[in-house]
Every structure is written in C-alpha cells, then in structure tokens.
Simulated scan of single mutants.
Amino acid sequence: MEITPSLMSVVTEMGNFSSEHFSLETYQQNLQTKKLGKIVLFTEVTTTTMNLLDGLMFKLPEEMGLIAIAVRQTQGKGRGGNVWLSPIGCALSTLHITIPLHSNLGQRIPFIQHLVSLAVVESVRSLPGYEDIDLRVKWPNDIYYSDLMKLGGVLVTSTLIETTFHILIGKCLFSDFFLFS
C-alpha cells in the first residue's frame, strides 16, 4: 500500500512496528498515565504533528488519549504563523486532551500553554544529571537554556464544541539541547 499525506499505515500490534528513531516499546514502558498518550500516531516525516490530529480529534472517543509523534516535521507550527523544519533528534509531539467548559481549567484555557511549558521544564529537570540545569520558560511558550539558547516551544490550540474544549498541545524540543548539555 502506498503511503500518502492522506493515507498512513496503522499498526495495531507492536510486533509490526519498527523505527530507527523511536522505540514504541520504551515509550509504552515509561508512560505513567492512565489515559494521556495511550494511543500513538507515529510517523517518520509529517508537515506537523498538529495536522495529524486536527479534525481526527473530533471523531474519536475522549478516553482514547491520542498523541501524534514524528521524527521530523517539514512545517512545524509556532506562534504568529511561524513555520520551521524540525530535523531528526528533536522531540516532536502533539497531544489531544478535552476539558469541560464549565470546569475550573475550562474557564482559564489560556493558562494551559503556560502550564505545559512549565511542565516541560520541570520534567527535564527531574532527569538524573539535569536537576540543576538553567532551563526556563520565556513567556509565553518558549523553552530556553539560560538566556542563551532557545531549545523549543509549546503551542496550544483549542476548539470549543458545545460544552467541551478540544485542546491540541504541540511540543518541540530541539536536538541542540541534548548536544549542548
């Protein structure tokens, strides 16, 4: 079967999956959530992981915990319509979550971008050997090493359907971080 931008192969068993740049087995062994990120859409190359989930997220049950992961992006998305190439070695993903409009967080949707940016920084700092790294958030969504180098960013888009926000959380950490540190 030929794979095109509108047709991707779907792997339902780990034995049928192989990638030089991503280990589904390691991912699943380290995933500690009950729902988030349980269903993985993986591709070696895409325009952007946001595009993989856009539209699809409205057709799936909320409990699916959908995430898109790519090795490379050819049109990564940023704030203000910025677009960039994301080479091999970047950590690229977009996660779909739903939030009820009338919940505390649903009344504060703009904070999600800030919370996720802080979570990225704190998750890197929780890794052995990285506890004291000068990693920070440059508001509203950039991840920086000190004031010297941008290492990545977080982009959040939201769509309100009836009383539920459908949120796409895109994250990119550049490979320079791992080379630099």
Rank of each mutant, 00 (worst) to 15 (best):
M1D: 09
E2V: 10
I3W: 07
I3G: 01
T4S: 15
S6L: 12
E13Y: 02
S18K: 15
S19M: 05
H21R: 14
H21K: 15
F22L: 04
S23W: 06
L24G: 09
L24N: 04
L24P: 00
T26H: 10
T26R: 11
Y27R: 07
Y27P: 02
Q28W: 11
Q28H: 12
L31I: 01
T33I: 07
K35W: 03
L36M: 15
L36K: 10
L36H: 11
G37P: 07
G37Q: 01
K38W: 04
I39Q: 12
L41I: 05
E44S: 14
V45K: 15
V45W: 07
V45N: 13
M50P: 02
M50R: 13
M50Y: 12
N51F: 14
L52T: 10
L53I: 08
D54L: 15
D54V: 04
G55L: 05
G55K: 12
G55T: 00
L56F: 09
L56T: 06
M57P: 00
M57R: 14
F58Q: 12
L60M: 15
E62K: 10
M64L: 13
A68P: 12
I69N: 05
I69Y: 03
A70K: 07
V71H: 12
R72N: 05
R72M: 15
T74L: 08
Q75T: 03
G76Q: 03
G76P: 04
K77T: 08
K77N: 05
K77L: 09
G78K: 11
R79D: 08
G80L: 14
G81R: 00
V83W: 04
P87F: 06
P87L: 01
G89S: 09
G89L: 05
L92S: 03
L92Y: 00
T94E: 03
H96F: 02
H96N: 09
I97C: 04
I99C: 15
I99P: 09
P100N: 14
S103C: 12
N104H: 10
G106R: 02
Q107Y: 03
Q107T: 11
I109K: 02
F111S: 10
L118V: 07
A119S: 13
A119Y: 13
V120G: 00
V121Q: 08
V121G: 12
R125L: 13
R125I: 00
R125G: 02
S126L: 08
S126A: 15
G129Q: 00
Y130Q: 10
Y130E: 06
E131W: 13
I133Q: 07
L135N: 04
K138I: 03
K138E: 05
P140G: 09
P140Y: 14
N141Q: 08
D142R: 09
D142H: 12
Y144Q: 13
S146E: 12
D147S: 07
L148S: 14
M149R: 14
M149T: 12
K150N: 11
G152N: 06
G153S: 00
V156K: 02
T157M: 02
T157V: 03
S158A: 15
S158D: 08
S158Y: 07
L160M: 09
I161R: 13
E162N: 14
F165K: 00
H166V: 07
H166S: 01
I169L: 10
G170Q: 05
K171G: 11
C172H: 02
C172F: 00
L173G: 09
D176Y: 10
F177N: 01
L179V: 07
L179H: 06
L179N: 04
F180C: 04
S181C: 12
